[in-house]
Amino acid sequence: MNRLLSGLFWISLCLILAFITLPLLVVVAASLSPSSTVTFSPADWTMKWYAALWASKWLDPFILSAKIAVIVSLVSGVLGALGAYAIAYEKCPGSEAIMAFLLSPLAVPQIVKGVAIVIFLSSAGLYALLGTPGLIAAHIVLTLPFAARMIATSIYNFDKNLDRAAQILGASKWQRIRHVLLPLIKPGVFSGMTFAFIISFNNIPLSVFLVRPGQTTLPITVINYMEYSLDPVLAAVNVASLIFILATIFLFEKLGGFSAQIHGGSK
């Protein structure tokens, strides 16, 4: 009986892991297959779908998405740090209510935020903001709570005695923020910014309302294309953007060194 149960456990674990990885493997194989029939034999594989990506049809949306994601991650990082600073460092009165307000967008489904923003921009006569500016604003609203929460956590975890030591030694407030607080919470700020970048780059439910012709992000371009064709070029687009995201995470990690924090090893 016990044998049977543990056998069942291992089999179900393997099946579930297979379920998780299957679509990813299929997409990678599809991006390398010569025709729309997916093949898993490396001998037949070709890079022609990746070569097809070098056209403005795919490059323009990619550049737009990357541009938006960079701006969104920078702005969310700065705004999130300001909010987290007031709440977690200054501990201003009412900080719990303030944090609740900063996190409130999380309680609202993205599609609802999308409807609200598109109604707002259209009925407030801000049509001009539809497209890139609207996308940036909407993505900031979406990612700011994550950034604020991550940065607030790292400020809470930061050793206040170091700050006191600097104060006793005569450091001004600005000096303490600049030379004590910021270097120590840098991993938190960078993980918040990385999060914002990924969420913005992959976003669909908000972007779908705000794109306009000529200003369409990559995921929206892909789903519009998917409506009528499942061309392997889509597989190549998806794999290429996944590689781009992994490269960005790697870059952010090099700059901010947040992996220690994610593994729970913050000192």
Binding site: I20, T21, V27, I204, V222, M226, L230
Partner: peptide, 19 residues
């Protein structure tokens, strides 16, 4: 393996399931 698919975004995975 359990967490990595989250990086891939919804489009890639939905495309995978479609094919």
């Amino acid at each position: 393996l359990a967490i990595a698919p989250e990086l891939a975004g919804v489009v890639l995975r939905t495309y995978g399931w479609l094919i």
